[in-house]
């Protein structure tokens, strides 16, 4: 049987069935009503589209805030990437800060170098003294190298 019954056939079947003793399980009504209540609950909720919109809105706001932060917060100096979109004043302040840091670094390097030179000189003098101790002329004899 491939086709659905016609209206006439359906009505005939209904009439014939109604002449006989009809039966349905007693629990069927309650089962159907329980499921219908669930469907009704889902219908009344009607939250799905709203929550999706709210979610999209939240995501968009979050992304916008993240992008803004990327532009607003300057990166650490020395890594070649400075904060983009800063005001001129902030640029100047940053530059000055960088310069003064540079100066400090240079003066520090110089001080270190100067100190090292001092130490090298002292060490040289000490070696000379030690060397002189082993020279024969100091001990009253010939130079041991000869």
């Amino acid at each position: 049987m491939n086709d659905y019954p016609t209206e006439e056939e359906l009505n005939r079947m209904i009439e014939e069935l109604e002449r006989e003793q009809l039966y349905a399980p007693r629990h069927l009504k309650e089962d159907i009503l329980v499921k219908a209540r669930k469907i009704e609950k889902r219908r009344n909720k009607n939250v799905q589209p709203v929550s999706f919109r709210m979610y999209t809105l939240k995501m968009a706001v979050g992304m916008a805030a993240a992008v803004l932060l990327v532009f607003m917060i300057p990166a650490e100096s020395g890594n070649g990437f400075e904060g983009i979109g800063m005001t001129e004043g902030r640029w100047k302040a940053l530059e000055e800060r960088n310069l003064s840091e540079e100066k400090d670094r240079v003066s520090l390097d110089e001080r270190i170098m100067a100190r090292m030179d001092e130490k090298r000189e002292e060490a040289g003098k000490l070696f000379e003294k030690v060397g002189n101790l082993f020279r024969r002329e100091d001990l009253g004899g010939n130079d041991y190298e000869n």
Partner: peptide, 28 residues
């Protein structure tokens, strides 16, 4: 119409449990 619907479903499918299911689906 519950009894009529169940009778129709049972008559066509010949299966009690299937008739139960389809009756429920019908009313839903």
């Amino acid at each position: 119409y519950g009894k009529l619907v169940f009778s129709i479903c049972y008559k066509i499918t010949g299966d009690y449990f299937t008739a139960e299911d389809i009756t429920q689906e019908t009313f839903l």
